[in-house]
Design a protein around this nucleic acid. Structure first.
Lengths: 218, 218
DNA sequence: AATTGAATCAAACGTATGTTTGAATCATAC
DNA sequence: GTATGATTCAAACATACGTTTGATTCAATT
């Protein structure tokens, strides 16, 4: 029995880094293992040796980012809620979005990647796993939104959350020039212009009066 | 010289129908020509005979729907504008969305397909062509929105339109059970619940006050 | 009925992909 | 220093794909 060498974890990380960038830029199907191993400067067979298949590599690429991001989201939300009062919608959205830009320093492709894997690229089996994890986070955020938007029925809150995720995902996937947070700096006011606009837009949509009469609580 | 037979245009339409549904359901890369020709009950070589390549077939699939949909959008908007006054935002959105459901009777996959080809699936070359066509329509709609939202700067209108397209696209692509319009019926109130919710949500986001102070016109 | 070009068909081609193999290399434990 | 198992490597494998071929069938013109 021999412990894994340090070289091997270097190789694994180089593969993960290269795959992360290529998956985010070109998509899963359009990225071949040969492109990944060339960019990572490792042998072709290394992918199937360290990860078992291309699909499993995708899951590893996702797993490396999703757990920290989602943990940070819940942590931020809980911290904001500590005052006890219902939060401003903008604050809830901030807790949802900001962690995407704090993870993996100077890797601006991470937000694009997460969107691709959650909604666009991944094949059905993997995507379901990814979405299931994210769904747990959304349920938690829905609880916060419910307190801030008491005029809405549960059905309407769910729908509007999906609409919001849509505009968020579209913005992440489309605009290639979303800057990451300044490294190590404090967080306040560091989100780029387009994301502040987005949060303002989404908050207004969420706050809109209920459309269904039956949804009014009085 | 011999005129094209009727059989051949039957074959072409069967290919287009099968490709449309498969592209919408599974995506472009995940759909092979063999899947298409099997579903269409035509010979494999028929695709390369009638269309030149898989990529060209995709363009034909898109072209068959995009021109009528976009024409109907512009026609509806112009008709709504005939009164001369600025439109309600909801009416502008209705003119943008409704035509997607009136085209190709009983083919509920068309809205999903259009979203996929505009933003998700198509390879860069084709997608740019598709988006360029749609962009012309968006410019026209932006003009209508500008009149209805005089408190916003041009930059903010553009950004909010992109956010709106995002939630629209996400809703189209995700919810597989958006019902088409009742065939031949009059249009009023025929949009499904989720789309009425979506229009209400988007309208509120568009109407939100300007975020930039410099954007105020007074 | 003969002719002509369009349309269909089964079969094959060339290529790119994910994956596997088996030998060579490296680092570690004894 | 040698043995051992983890890691690398060049090469090959199997497969699925888009595309092409060449013969055959079909329908329309004469």
């Amino acid at each position: 029995m021999v412990a894994p060498s340090e070289h091997s974890i270097d190789t694994k990380n180089r593969i993960l880094d290269a795959a992360e960038r290529l998956f985010a830029d070109k998509g899963f199907d359009a990225t071949s293992l040969r492109m990944i191993t060339t960019a990572a400067e490792v042998n072709l067979a290394a992918v199937n040796y360290h990860f078992q298949s291309k699909e499993t590599l995708l899951q590893a690429v996702y797993a490396r980012r999703s757990a920290p991001v989602n943990a940070k989201r819940l942590e931020l939300l809980t911290q904001f809620e500590s005052s006890g009062e219902p939060l401003e919608v903008e604050q809830i959205l901030d807790a949802l979005i900001r962690p995407l830009f704090e993870i993996g320093e100077s890797r601006e492709c991470v937000p694009r990647l997460m969107v691709r894997l959650l909604y666009l690229d991944a094949h059905e089996a993997s995507r379901n796993v990814f979405q299931q994890q994210f769904h747990q986070v959304l349920i938690r955020f829905q609880g916060a939104l419910r307190k801030s938007l008491p005029h809405l029925s549960e059905k309407e809150i769910t729908a509007r959350m999906q609409f919001s995720i849509g505009s968020l995902a579209h913005t992440m996937a489309a605009s290639r020039n979303l800057q990451a947070m300044p490294a190590g700096g404090q967080m306040k006011e560091a989100l780029p212009w387009v994301l502040r606009q987005l949060i303002h837009y989404i908050a207004a949509g969420l706050r809109a009066p209920a459309l269904e009469e039956s949804a009014c609580t009085f």
